[in-house]
Amino acid sequence: MTEGILFDVKRYAVHDGPGIRTTVFLQGCPLACRWCHNPESQAMSPEDPVRTDGTEAVGRRVGVEEVMAEIERDVPFYDESGGGVTFSGGEPLAQPEFLAAVLDHCGRHAIHRAVDTCGYAPRQTLLEIARRTDLFLYDLKVIDPRRHAEWTGVDNEPIHANLAALCETEVRIELRMPVVPGITDTDANLRQLVALVEALPRRPPLRLLPYHRAAMDKHRRFGLHIPLPDTPEPSEEHLREIRRILTSSEIMVVP
């Protein structure tokens, strides 16, 4: 029986793909982005959990059927809205067998499947998952390799190579970039982003995700040190400006 480790399930998720969705957050992430919204999900094992309020383990071991029962609860909403399930994290590709098993179940029940990934995974894993997925939400953050390592803890070469490989498949892709002022929205980074996307075999649309400071409170609650104490949320005007810069290239920016 395949088991996975979840750290949360959120119903009526409205920012994780088309329609009304249930987002299943898998525990554990190979990256450690310093602006992470869900820092409590980064630890790779539930046996070493971050604790909320000193009482509750975050990660939870569950079987495929259990998670399916939860996903299927909102089928009427998916039907009405063209929604479905999104696997996020953490990093869903970090639990490939479990993820593949749940995706297969969803496929048999005709539930739309999205996978929200940082792309940092073995190529084979990514392509195995892609065969079972309707939509990839693929994150691009800092394009310069050195700075990427600085902000996230890992090299981004495999992420970019994986994206190129994914573009050779049939799967729908939406690129996503967190707009973290002073980090991902610099002129240099935007320029490099455009160059990267334009060099891909196809050009998936890009969505901007404005950084929000709500995670600061979580960092505080989980006793994590606060990494970006002075970073503001990007203003509407600033977002419009970035959108303008990007649309002047060949990239389609999702509103």
Binding site: V14, H15, I20, P76, D79, E80, S81, G83
Partner: peptide, 22 residues
Amino acid sequence: SVLAGEEGLTKLGQLVRTYFRM
């Protein structure tokens, strides 16, 4: 914040439609 943007409106409407389907 949940209802922000065009999408927030659309999804609120879909929530209502689903309830009424039931």
